[in-house]
């Protein structure tokens, strides 16, 4: 399958890239690892006029401590994350999650920025031009109708990233650079939850780095998929828990992937968990609550009810893991 033709830019600075992007934002794409973008381009769901290669910009791939904060450049690869001594020591969970993305080569190529900004997925969208040819293009691919709900003007594509749930649970922020300078926003706010335009980036903005506050509490990531490699999650879960000094839970973050148009935080379940102790009854109630709170759509070969069920099961497993005195 050939790529469509495009103009290819190799900016030397982020400013240059921002200018190029802002000049024709709708018909431009940013190339980082390419593992998501090039597949979509081969499938002709994205046919950009210009491809802006961010890898030619120096010094965007780093992992460093700045005071207590960990900063990761957007072009750091997932493999950089899993092999970085600094991350292994301070945020072993991030190293772990990076090894759960795709497979080895995809981790060596794929970048953190690209992973966070990866396109939403849908069984009607992530298909070849031939496959999609039987129906008019879906709303996300430039048509009118969302084939998932058979309604116009909506897009229910699903966010399936692995890194975002954990980073949101760790309260990471992202620094973006645009035509009007830099701004920092919480990672959670990067996601618009609009399937058609899943990122809240403004015209010409580029994700530059991820900022992670000092670690506290414990974080787990459970990824549910049929095979233990290659696949995106059917559903996955990041659970972050901080004790309040007693046996009770002070703070809880529960964030799912692959069940909504962005990473999904189940706030009701979090509240239920906070200031409770982790007894079996709480675990049952919280898991059920979380499963109720999410609204997966039929965007993959897996049914929404199955995703919902597995979401509850994963959370239960994660919480049970915290019951053990020294969780993994």
């Amino acid at each position: 399958m050939r790529l469509p033709k495009f103009e290819y830019l190799e900016p030397k600075t982020l400013q240059e890239a921002v200018r190029a992007l802002a000049s024709d934002a709708k018909r431009s794409v940013l190339l980082a690892g390419g593992t998501d973008l090039l597949v979509n381009m081969k499938h002709r769901v994205i046919e950009p006029k210009q491809v802006i290669n961010l890898k030619t910009i120096p010094k965007l791939a780093y992992v460093k401590n700045v005071k207590d904060e960990l900063r990761i450049g957007a072009l750091a690869t997932l493999h950089d994350l899993s092999s970085s001594r600094v991350i292994q020591e301070r945020f072993p969970i991030l190293s772990h999650v990076a090894t759960k993305v795709g497979a080895y080569a995809l981790q060596a190529m794929g970048t953190l920025g690209g992973n966070l900004c990866q396109g939403n997925r849908c069984r009607f969208y992530n298909q070849s031009a031939f496959w999609r040819g039987a129906k008019p293009p879906c709303y996300k691919a430039g048509g009118k109708l969302c084939h998932v709900v058979r309604k116009p003007g909506e897009c229910h594509s699903t966010y399936c990233g692995d890194m975002a749930p954990v980073l949101i649970a760790l309260e990471a922020q992202v620094r973006v650079v645009g035509p009007n300078g830099e701004r920092v926003l919480s990672l959670s706010k990067l996601y618009s939850r609009d399937g058609k335009r899943p990122l809240s980036l403004r015209k010409g903005e580029i994700l530059k780095e991820v900022l992670i506050p000092p670690p506290s509490g414990k974080t787990l990531y459970l990824k549910w998929r049929r095979r233990e490699s290659i696949e995106f999650p059917i559903v996955s879960l990041a659970l972050h828990i901080e004790k309040d000094g007693t046996e009770k839970i002070g703070k809880a973050r529960i964030i799912f992937s692959a069940v909504g148009s962005g990473p999904v935080e189940t706030i009701g379940a979090e509240e239920m968990l906070e200031s409770s102790s982790l007894d079996n009854r709480t675990i049952e109630r919280v898991s059920n609550q979380a499963a109720k709170e999410i609204s997966p759509m039929r965007t993959s070969i897996y049914s929404p009810s199955y995703k919902r069920r597995m979401a509850g099961i994963l959370l239960r497993q994660a919480l049970e893991n915290f019951q053990i005195p020294n969780p993994k």
Binding site: A103, R123, A134, R227, E228, S229, F232
Partner: peptide, 16 residues
């Protein structure tokens, strides 16, 4: 219509 015409969605076993 085949819904999973790829190694991504068709469950051919991996080494794992």
């Amino acid at each position: 219509r085949v819904l999973n015409p790829s190694f991504l969605d068709y469950g051919i076993p991996t080494a794992m």
